[in-house]
């Protein structure tokens, strides 16, 4: 359903700081597949997600979603069928608006933003049910500003907003990296159950190899803008964190010195 074909992205082209973020990356996702993208800092993981979501346009290559070429579709147009959760919890919600108003903005995704009421009584009932599933008690605080929520609560809310109107593709960019371990676990559990129930094809960038192995059906490892490992099925089932590190060192010719990845 998602076909990335030889996508290349170079930043600061023609300067001394020129950096190839994506070097002819090709990747195909099947319906309902939950893929983890791992790799060190600067390996191109986030750039890959940003090219898919339209924050950046690729220099060459193409990106297709359900057969439609979206390589140069503006970000806001793609958002109608791509759900996103960012690393920074502040990025996912409007802090000065209430929880229910935030949900309403996500709820009318893909529909006309006209002069009909932005939030109806019926909407509020739907939101209450959906919020209850987060099990954070937010269904009783729907009039509170999103700015009053903790980072974890906000990420859970953003996740709900990203999948409320079922997207074709869900992009998670280290969405638990800024959270404390127990909150991160909670948000990951929510992620897992949502993705499973809704069967949404998902790309999750993470630094945490253990999470990646536990949750995902496929692991993609990136290094210097290239995909150096793509394991699914039996190959993925046999992987452990140690084996992943071993493979990383073998394929990148470098020792893994990223504390965040090792400690996780």
């Amino acid at each position: 359903m998602l076909e990335i074909n030889r996508v290349k992205k170079v930043f600061l082209k023609g300067t001394v700081n020129e950096r190839t973020a994506l070097d002819n990356v090709s990747l195909t996702l099947k319906e309902g597949e939950f893929v983890a993208v791992i790799g060190g800092n600067g390996s191109g993981k986030s750039t890959l997600l940003n090219c898919i979501s339209g924050v950046h346009f690729p220099d060459s290559g193409s990106i297709k979603l359900d057969g439609e070429d979206i390589s140069f579709l503006p970000e806001y147009k793609r958002s109608k069928f791509i759900g996103r959760v960012f690393q920074d919890p502040l990025k996912g919600t409007a802090f000065d608006m209430s929880i229910e108003e935030n949900l309403a903005i996500a709820w009318y995704k893909g529909r006309s933003r006209n002069l009909k009421p932005g939030l109806t009584r019926k909407d509020i009932e739907v939101f209450r049910e959906k919020l209850a599933r987060l099990d954070l008690g937010l269904e009783n605080r729907m009039k509170d500003k999103a700015g009053l929520l903790s980072g974890g609560q906000r990420q859970a809310l953003t996740l709900l907003m990203a999948i409320m109107v079922r997207p074709k593709l869900l992009l998670l960019d280290e969405h638990t990296a800024a959270l404390d371990p127990s909150t991160a676990k909670k948000v990951l559990q929510l992620t897992r159950s949502f993705v499973k129930e809704e069967k949404i094809a998902t790309l999750m960038v993470t630094h945490n190899m253990k999470d990646a192995l536990e949750m995902c059906s496929r692991i993609v490892m990136m290094h210097e803008g290239r995909i150096v490992l793509d394991a699914s099925g039996e190959e993925k089932e046999n992987l452990t964190v140690d084996k992943l590190i071993e493979k990383f060192e073998e394929r990148s010719g470098q020792t893994l010195d990223n504390d965040r990845m090792l400690l996780a």
Binding site: G92, A94, M97, E101, A104, Y108, N114, P117, G118
Partner: peptide
Amino acid sequence: KTRFGFVLRATGDNENMVRASGVN
């Protein structure tokens, strides 16, 4: 308080989120 009014208010708060909600 309309659907458009909501995204207008959110634009000042968080442009990112508004674009991620499919709004120009």
